[in-house]
Design a protein around this nucleic acid. Structure first.
Lengths: 207, 207
DNA sequence: TAGATTGTTAATCGATTAACAATC
DNA sequence: TAGATTGTTAATCGATTAACAATC
């Protein structure tokens, strides 16, 4: 199958999460326009995204939630469990860990890293925290493929290099410094400061 | 001036931050290809973004950092100080507060809100924490225009409604639930779970 | 000057939307 | 059937890149 557009992948992930919530609330089917309204997109957008994964509902009573969530998983979920680490175990690292804990069955958070000796060893939210010196060792032994970078921004670049050197294949960067990685490493930036500044710009504009 | 593309606004914010860092390190000028390399974009992209704000360097020795950062500020910064609140003062809320504290002079974090009585009143990182019941009152009295939403996802929709009802003009949503707001409210979503799932998808692909 | 860089137009690429056929 | 919905092509819109003129 052809590689999906980045934005489609993101939306499919969101559709699935929304549908799982609706399913818990007793809903079994959902119309494209319902999904659309819940995500601030158009119904055509939803149908197009679903078309991308080759799914077809064969009914006019909306999409079968159970069926469609499974179809999305087949496309966007990894085939085997992927292990993650959170690097930098401060407030942000802990918050991100909590978000990730047991949310997605195929994505497993297995380790945290920090330089603060007080944090090392602690099982704060169910995962062990290691010294950053053991980064390479633990990444290899635990077969960790993705990392969430939540260290202080001043350490971001150096840490990113260390992660790449340790064999990490994907980095989610939560620092406020843009990092560079080789082309074969997946990178996702989440920059709070620029998000806020962008928001401020568009608030201003709408007045 | 015409409204800038969203992505351009975001990149301009990032360019500025990078340039300020470079300036602190003693650099006074920077080439478009240098800025480009630091942000994983092309030099043409950088020049085009700068063109959007009507800035021109009039030299072939790179952009004058002091001058260009000022020009970017003139376009993307609010004309007067904007007050922000963080709603939900757990690990994530505290981490986001720390990120924002004294980083941007025109964006001032002035209040936190939480339901936990233990947190209320505390000046954790220099800002007071109020009971969520006082949301409307404090937003009005402190003239708060933007909110960072970092409550548990189950409370996200209700809290978003309360914020809009209180007169908030922009929301940065850090919960894992998409929220709906009227068209005149600016909204920026930062969804950790879908970011991770997207990352996993593209890690898979590059193998 | 020659070489490097900026600024800008035109072309390309990718993502969204409009229009509508097919289906229940 | 009539009405509502899905699936899909074609058109549009927006963002990026290629090409190159202008400048130091």
């Amino acid at each position: 199958m052809k590689v999906l557009p980045e934005k489609t992948v993101k939306r499919l992930s969101e559709y699935r999460r929304t549908m799982l919530r609706c399913f818990d609330e007793g809903k079994t089917h959902i119309y494209s326009h319902e999904l659309a309204a819940l995500h601030n997109v158009t119904a055509v957008q939803v149908r197009r995204d679903i078309m991308f994964i080759g799914y077809s509902s064969q009914s006019r009573i909306g999409y079968d939630i159970k069926d469609l969530t499974k179809a999305i998983g087949k496309i966007i979920d990894p085939k085997e469990v992927m292990n993650l680490a959170v690097v930098g175990y401060g407030n942000l690292g802990k918050a991100l860990s909590a978000y990730l804990m047991n949310k997605r069955p195929m994505l497993k958070l297995v380790a945290a890293f920090d330089i603060d000796p007080k944090k090392i060893g602690s099982l704060n939210s169910g995962i062990p925290c290691y010294s950053i010196e053991r980064l390479r060792e633990i990444i290899a032994s635990q077969n960790i493929t993705m990392a969430i970078l939540s260290v202080p921004s001043s350490a971001a670049r150096e840490m990113a290099r260390a992660l790449v050197a340790s064999g990490i294949k994907g980095i989610l960067n939560f620092t406020t410094v843009n990092i560079n990685v080789p082309a074969d490493i997946a990178l996702e930036e989440s920059d709070i400061i620029s998000s806020i500044e962008k928001l401020a710009y568009f608030v201003k504009r709408t007045r």
